[in-house]
Design a protein around this nucleic acid. Structure first.
Length: 344
DNA sequence: AGTCTCGGACTGTCAAAGTG
DNA sequence: ACTTTGACAGTCCGAGACTC
C-alpha cells in the first residue's frame, strides 16, 4: 500500500495475494461461523509491506466484531488494461563509469564494465567523480503525512499533481474510480474514512446460496448462478455456513446491501459505519469493479503457495506487483544484463 | 541492425526538520 | 538521539535520430 513501499522481503511461505483493501481481523464469529483470519495491522510506525500483508500472518484476533481495514495497494495499471507483468524495481549501481554515465546507459560494478567491454571502451572505463552534496539548504517545515492518505494518494497515482486527499476538497475525486482497485479505494474511503478498526457483520446463516432469481432478503436479486449478490458497503463476511477451516473456495467477503441490519451479535457490539451510504451511490459499473475486490478467504488460508488468483485473476497483475516485495523486484538486479541492454 | 543522443522517470543518499 | 521528510545528485529506461 501502500505507500511506497517499505522494503521488505517475502518468502514462499508468506501468504500471498491478499486482496486489495481489507485486511481483516478475526472476530469471534457467531455459532457456525469460522474464525476469520487475516493479517494484523501494521505495528505502530510501520507500514504494510508491499504484499499488503503484515507479519505474522493469520489467524489473528481483533477486537470482537471488528475487522481492520487499510487502504489497498496502489495499482499500476487500470483494470481495463491488459495484464502487464510488473516491472521489477530498478537497481542502480553506486557509481556508473564515465562512459555509461555519458551515454545514460546501464553500468555495472565491474571495471571495465560490461558495456565498455562490449563497445571497446574498456580503457576509459573509470568511475566518475561524484559531486559533493549541497549543504545548508534551508527547508520549510515539513508536513507529516497521514498514513492512510499517503497510501491512498500513491494508490491514485503517486501524488505528484494527482488527486489526493490533501490539497483537494473533494476526495475521492468525483468520477473515480476508473478501475477495480480504485473502486476499492473509493469504497474504503467512502465507507471507512480512516485506516483502523471497523465493524464486521455476518450474514444470517442459511441466507445463501439463494435459489436462482430469488431476491435476497435485502432486496437484491440473486444472480442466476445462485451466488450472493454483488457487494455493497459495508460488508458481511459471507459464504456458506457452517464454515470449515480453512474456508472453502467460494466463500467470499461481501458487502451487505443498503439498509441491511447487522445481525444482533455484531451490531450490538459495533454499529455500522455511518457514511456507508456514500458507497451505495456508486454507479453500477463501479460495483462491478468492487466485485473484483471481493476476497476469497480460501486464499487467505492457503499458506502452501498454491493460490488461485483473486477474483479478477490475472488482471490483478498490477496489484500483484505490490504483493511482490521489493526484494524480488530486484530480481533483475545486476545479473540482468540480458534484457536491459538491448539497444546497445 | 546497430549505435548514439537525450529527456525525464526513477533511485539512493543525506541534511534539515521534527519528535519523544 | 532518533525518526521523518524533502530534495539533491545520480542512474538508466526508452524512444527517436543517425549511421553503416
Amino acid at each position: 500500500m501502500a505507500t511506497d513501499q517499505p522494503k521488505s522481503t517475502s518468502t514462499p511461505e508468506q501468504p500471498a495475494a491478499f486482496p486489495p483493501h481489507f485486511i481483516s481481523g478475526t472476530v469471534p464469529p457467531p455459532p457456525g461461523y469460522p474464525p476469520f483470519f487475516a493479517y494484523p495491522p501494521p505495528a505502530e510506525g510501520q507500514q504494510s509491506d508491499s504484499n499488503g500483508a503484515h507479519a505474522p500472518p493469520y489467524p489473528v484476533m481483533y477486537p470482537p466484531g471488528m475487522f481492520y481495514a487499510f487502504p489497498p495497494p496502489p495499482q499500476t495499471s487500470p483494470a481495463s488494461a491488459p495484464a502487464v507483468a510488473p516491472r521489477p524495481k530498478r537497481k542502480q549501481v553506486k557509481m556508473a563509469c564515465t562512459n555509461c554515465a555519458t551515454a545514460s546507459k546501464r553500468c555495472d560494478e565491474g571495471r571495465p564494465c560490461q558495456r565498455c567491454r562490449k563497445y571497446g571502451t574498456a580503457d576509459t572505463c573509470v568511475d566518475g567523480q561524484r559531486k559533493e552534496r549541497k549543504k545548508g539548504v534551508k527547508r520549510g517545515p515539513y508536513k507529516r503525512k497521514n498514513k492512510l492518505h499517503q497510501t491512498i494518494d500513491s494508490a491514485y497515482g503517486g501524488g505528484s499533481g494527482e488527486a489526493s486527499p490533501e490539497g483537494s476538497s473533494e476526495w475521492p475525486p468525483q468520477g473515480t474510480p476508473p478501475n477495480a482497485t480504485a473502486a476499492a479505494i473509493y469504497a474504503v474511503a467512502a465507507g471507512f474514512p480512516h485506516e483502523g478498526y471497523y465493524p464486521v457483520f455476518y450474514p444470517q446463516p442459511g441466507v445463501y446460496p439463494l435459489p436462482e432469481g430469488q431476491p435476497a432478503p435485502d432486496g437484491n436479486a440473486a444472480p442466476a448462478n445462485g451466488q450472493p449478490p454483488p457487494p455493497v458497503m459495508p460488508f458481511y463476511i459471507s459464504g456458506f455456513p457452517p464454515f470449515p477451516y480453512p474456508p472453502p473456495p467460494g466463500a467470499v467477503f461481501q458487502f451487505p446491501p443498503p439498509g441491511a441490519v447487522p445481525p444482533p451479535a455484531a451490531s450490538a457490539a459495533q454499529p455500522a459505519p455511518a457514511n456507508s451510504t456514500e458507497a451505495e451511490q456508486q454507479p453500477a459499473e463501479e460495483k462491478k469493479d468492487d466485485e473484483a475486490t471481493c476476497v476469497n478467504p480460501a486464499e487467505l488460508s492457503d499458506t502452501a503457495g498454491t493460490h488461485p488468483s483473486p477474483v479478477g485473476g490475472e488482471e490483478e497483475g498490477g496489484s500483484s506487483e505490490k504483493r511482490l516485495t521489493p526484494a524480488e523486484g530486484e530480481v533483475n538486479n545486476d545479473d540482468d544484463h540480458n534484457g536491459s541492454e538491448t539497444q546497445d
